[in-house]
Simulated assay, not measured.
Amino acid sequence: MLFGKKKDKKPSNIAMMDSKVNEDYVEEKVTKIKDEDVEIVMDNEEAISKKLSNAGPLRKYTELGKIMFSMLKDVKKGSYTNVPWFTIATIVVALLYVFNPFDLVPDFIPGIGYIDDLAVLSMGMGWIETDLHKYLDWRLSGGEEA
């Protein structure tokens, strides 16, 4: 799980911003996502959405967050099934990472606190962009499975 575990306080945390290290970190977390993690995200939708809309650097991801939550809800209801688990897990990792204030670069550090959140959201978006577009097309077509 992404929070609840204390991270090592090594001086190399800032060095984790290297894109390859970050990608490996996120990919490792994605492979460990469970159904319970999806529930944690859904239970904290309001807090995550509030953080996305109130944190200046993350504000541009507010609409993306709404789409991700909408997709998770439709998958959970069983109305949208055309999505690989990797996509759901990526959404969950990205949103849990944003929700966690004590990540690689803690959010309370002025100026750089949201750099890692932006990196994780951007990386995740790159991995699942096609699936998000398919989901939006599905929604626009009336929300019926093909």
Rank of each mutant, 00 (worst) to 15 (best):
M1F: 09
M1E: 13
G4T: 13
K5Q: 07
K7I: 10
K7W: 09
K7S: 08
D8W: 14
D8L: 15
D8M: 14
K10G: 08
P11A: 11
P11S: 11
P11E: 12
S12H: 02
I14Y: 07
A15W: 00
K20A: 15
K20W: 13
K20S: 13
V21C: 02
N22E: 08
N22W: 02
N22V: 08
D24Y: 00
D24P: 00
Y25M: 05
V26C: 05
E27K: 06
E27S: 10
E28Q: 08
E28C: 00
K29P: 01
K29D: 05
V30F: 06
K32A: 11
I33D: 00
D35C: 00
V38P: 03
D43I: 03
D43N: 15
E45P: 00
E46V: 14
A47K: 15
I48P: 03
S49P: 00
L52A: 09
S53H: 10
S53R: 12
N54E: 14
N54G: 09
G56E: 08
G56S: 06
R59I: 07
R59N: 11
L64A: 11
L64D: 07
K66R: 15
F69E: 02
F69Y: 08
M71T: 04
M71P: 02
K73R: 09
D74M: 10
V75F: 02
K76I: 02
K76G: 02
K77V: 07
S79H: 10
T81Y: 01
P84Q: 10
P84T: 11
W85F: 13
T87P: 08
T87S: 09
T87D: 04
A89E: 05
T90L: 12
I91H: 02
I91R: 05
V92C: 01
V93P: 07
Y97H: 08
V98Y: 04
F99G: 03
F99N: 11
N100Q: 07
P101I: 04
L104P: 01
P106Y: 06
D107Q: 14
D107A: 15
F108Y: 15
P110A: 14
G111H: 09
I112H: 02
Y114Q: 10
I115S: 12
I115L: 15
D116E: 12
A119N: 11
L121Y: 03
L121R: 05
S122M: 04
M123L: 10
M123N: 04
I128F: 01
T130R: 10
D131I: 06
D131R: 08
L132I: 15
L132F: 10
H133E: 14
H133I: 15
H133F: 12
K134D: 02
K134W: 00
Y135T: 05
Y135S: 01
L136W: 09
L136E: 14
W138S: 11
R139M: 10
R139G: 04
L140E: 07
G143T: 06
G143D: 00
E144C: 07
